[in-house]
Amino acid sequence: MNGWLATALAVAGGLTMLWLLALAALAIARPRGNLLTEAVRLLPDLLRLIPRLAGDRSLPRGTRIRLWLLLAYLAMPLDLVPDFVPVLGYADDAIVVAAVLRSVVRHAGQEALDRHWPGTPDGLAAVRRLTGLPVNPAGS
């Protein structure tokens, strides 16, 4: 077999393996139960929340960097699962957003989420469930 062909096949196989591992990671990180449907429904509000959080200088730098990287991922024309695939095409974006928001809330605190939430109180309750926070925060 030609050396270039063997190299190309090895690279293609490696990239396919990485893609399958990324899909497996998404399947493991996905919100359980009804939360994935809620995350997809809330995606427009979440897309307004992320830049607000990313621009908040009171949040730790690593948290803001994570949010900017998330925005870059969402802006990329290539997805792990193409958007034209029904349901799953947008679910991968929702899963990535949910995973990053869980991490952000752990590091930045729920006050930042409450302060920057652009949607309805019901939407905030859904995001709280998505990130593992209590739906009714203490003191409300």
Rank of each mutant, 00 (worst) to 15 (best):
L42C: 05
A29Q: 14
G55S: 14
V104G: 02
I95E: 03
A10N: 11
P51I: 05
A126C: 09
L23S: 02
S103G: 15
V81S: 03
L43T: 15
G109T: 07
W19R: 10
A24S: 10
L124P: 01
R52Q: 07
L20W: 07
L53E: 05
A138W: 06
L133Q: 15
L18M: 13
E111N: 07
L47V: 09
A27D: 15
L130C: 00
A25P: 00
L5E: 14
H107Y: 02
R57Q: 15
A54K: 00
L71K: 03
L74R: 13
L5H: 08
P77I: 12
V81T: 04
L20D: 06
A112Q: 05
V96Q: 08
L23G: 08
G119N: 01
I95Y: 03
A54M: 02
R41T: 10
T131G: 04
L20Q: 13
G33H: 04
A94M: 00
I50F: 05
A54W: 00
S58I: 11
L35F: 04
P134C: 03
L5K: 12
D122V: 08
L59H: 02
L130M: 00
R30S: 14
L78S: 13
L20P: 07
G119H: 01
R115L: 08
P51V: 07
R106A: 11
L21T: 10
T63L: 09
V87L: 11
I50M: 08
L80Y: 06
L70P: 05
T16M: 14
E38Q: 13
I50C: 05
S103R: 06
N2P: 15
G89M: 05
V87A: 13
R102Q: 03
A108G: 11
L74C: 10
A112T: 03
L80H: 06
A8R: 10
G109F: 10
A25C: 06
D83K: 11
A112H: 02
G109Y: 04
G109L: 06
L15V: 11
W19V: 07
R66V: 01
Y73I: 04
I95Q: 05
T37H: 13
A22E: 12
G13C: 13
D56A: 02
E111P: 02
A24E: 07
L18C: 14
A6L: 14
G119S: 02
P31E: 05
L69W: 04
A6Q: 13
V81W: 01
V135M: 09
L69Q: 14
L74D: 07
N34H: 11
S140N: 05
P82A: 06
V100T: 12
A112Y: 03
G55M: 09
G62M: 09
A108Q: 01
T131H: 02
A125Q: 04
R128L: 02
G33D: 06
W19N: 13
A39F: 11
R48W: 02
W19Q: 12
E111R: 13
P82S: 06
L26Q: 15
L42Q: 13
L67M: 04
G132S: 07
G109P: 09
A27N: 11
P86C: 09
I50Y: 05
R52A: 15
V127G: 09
G13I: 08
L5A: 15
P31R: 01
R41F: 11
A6W: 12
A94Y: 00
A24R: 14
R106S: 05
L74S: 02
A22S: 15
A24V: 15
M1E: 09
P121H: 03
W117Y: 05
P44Y: 00
N2S: 14
E38W: 12
W117T: 02
